[in-house]
Nucleic acid binder design. Sequence first.
DNA 1: GTTTCTTCAGACCC
DNA 2: CGGGTCTGAAGAAA
Length: 646
Amino acid sequence: MTTSHIPSFNHMSSSSSPTPPLIPKPEPVTDSTDLQTPIPTSSSPPNLYTEFNNVAETFRSAFAQRLKRHDDVTVLNSLTGAIVTVPEEQDPVPVSVPSPSLVTRKPKPQERSSELVRITDVGPEGERQFREVVRKTRMIYDSLRIFLILEELREDFAMGSGSSSRRRGRADSKAASMMKERFLWLNRDKRIVGSIPGVQVGDIFFFRLELCVMGLHGQTQAGIDYLIGSRSSNGEPIATSVIVSGGYEDDDDRGDVIIYTGHGGQDKLGRQAEHQKLEGGNLAMERSMYYGIEVRVVRGFKYENSVSSKVYVYDGLFRIVDSWFDVGKSGFGVFKFRLERIGGQVEMGTSVLKFAKTLKTNPLSVRPSGYISFDISNRKEKAPVYLFNDIDDDREPLYYEYLASASFPRGILFQRSGDDGAGGCDCINGCGSGCLCEMKNGGQFAYDYSGNLIRMRPVIHECGPACKCPPSCRNRVTQKGLRSSLEVFRSVETGWGVRSLDILHAGAFICEYVGVALTREQASILTMNGDTLVYPARFSSARWKAWGDLSEVFPDDYERRPPPSYPQIPPVDFAMDVSKLRNVACYISHSTDSNVIVQFVLHDHNNIMFPRVMLFAAENIPPMTELSLDYGVSDDEWSPKLAICN
DNA sequence: GTTTCTTCAGACCC
DNA sequence: CGGGTCTGAAGAAA
């Protein structure tokens, strides 16, 4: 080991920032371990002087252990400090949680491991498995969160309207706690340095506790997550992830470069009121910089959406390249860390989000070229449907008449909802507990109060023309039309495709799959003529059937909380012809790994053989991400989307 | 193992 | 609609 590896405080007065007068000039001295450790010597304020001595002592003890610099740290083994690569053949699923049903007595929640691991060479198959685990866990979290909100509202309702004004419980944190108790948090058995398997750059979250559940960032509020020194192999704290969400005024976020402020020194109102100290997360950041250990960066910012007012975006890995002590805007000393994004990663989710926002808000003139139409629906939809093509001259979607709602054959048994004498509900103030329409849906509405699908059903009965509830009723989600701005775009890989300029929360209604519905007889004639049709019954959403299934959370009283039963399995046997009239949906690509699901819905009539085909987001979908549906055919077979819309 | 402290939340109120 | 205020849970620190 050479002295160049010994940490010095040079970084604390980087050349780019003038050394503030508050900071003592570090002067190297030789200590008993023959390792040079800088000791401040000036007549600085005593608190800072003490602080520097403390830090110096920390480093002295750390370096007494003769640490080497590891440029290619893969695993810091807690026993040996050895660097090990986690090989591909090792169990690709680190989530070894005991089955909740096997747990009889309430065990102590699993503690976070202190073993620092970097997971590499997972391989495509491993990544797919990890992704599936992450997906499922997120589904449970979201379903549980929504369940808790609905449960609370139900209690309020039962107790009478007077108590409904009480403060709402934190479903986001309660859901996380319950999952923690049931060992459903991910990546607790290893402390992961670098990317979390199954979590991709651009992934969107809505709550800090969601990040905890994923193992992306273990702190519920704090911005720096780190392994504490007393539990690390070399006695030094190591930072693994940071949240950038504007909590400190001295942050300077330039995208690929972030000047990140350390923590501490703020008063109760969040104002910088004293000097920060090189301890805790601040020291961990410095140590991660020294060892070249990358940190995950999650950005959080305001973004109005249906479930919260914020979003958190995973922006990938950054390296800490510099750190120094500076005078903050408040006049108090703060630690600063220069983070630089590591190359070779996909575009940051934050950049995509911002870009999508500019597409929506900027005047038409400053949008990128390639926009052929700013609304191919000609205002038939509630939100514009853009048409974008910057790779060739194809303008095909312009040449079709846009149909906002599917057309069903005349002459078939066709009843307006309510015409059968059953009538609609009488909920003049909107539908609530015990409403007739809730009964039609197995005693539970299909949507939560944000208008998101709670779980898939064979068919959903929305309130219809015969119902007395207002159009704003929670059970009229798909009738309200498009909620997000969609864009039909041209790509080399998939031809025409569809993406959203807004974040689509899991369960969000996207649009109807529109065409001219044909009976089997009508369809057979058309097929003979060579036209290709889409068969709604073939759409596959099998992967998402477990959506909303909380049996892993409520294993014991599953009897008490059975999924509602839905008597009607619709005998859907019609074809959708999109060769002449169509909407945005037919441009959605086919994928067996789809992010959009098909849900049958009845609202303007009650012929169960001809439900409307409604599309919902199957997971949180970031803006500009291509939507995909499982058309129920294998990739090499005929693809309706490719055949019809290309 | 326990208790206390800190924290780039989140909801609600005005 | 934004700041003040209240509650809070995880994890670090004591």
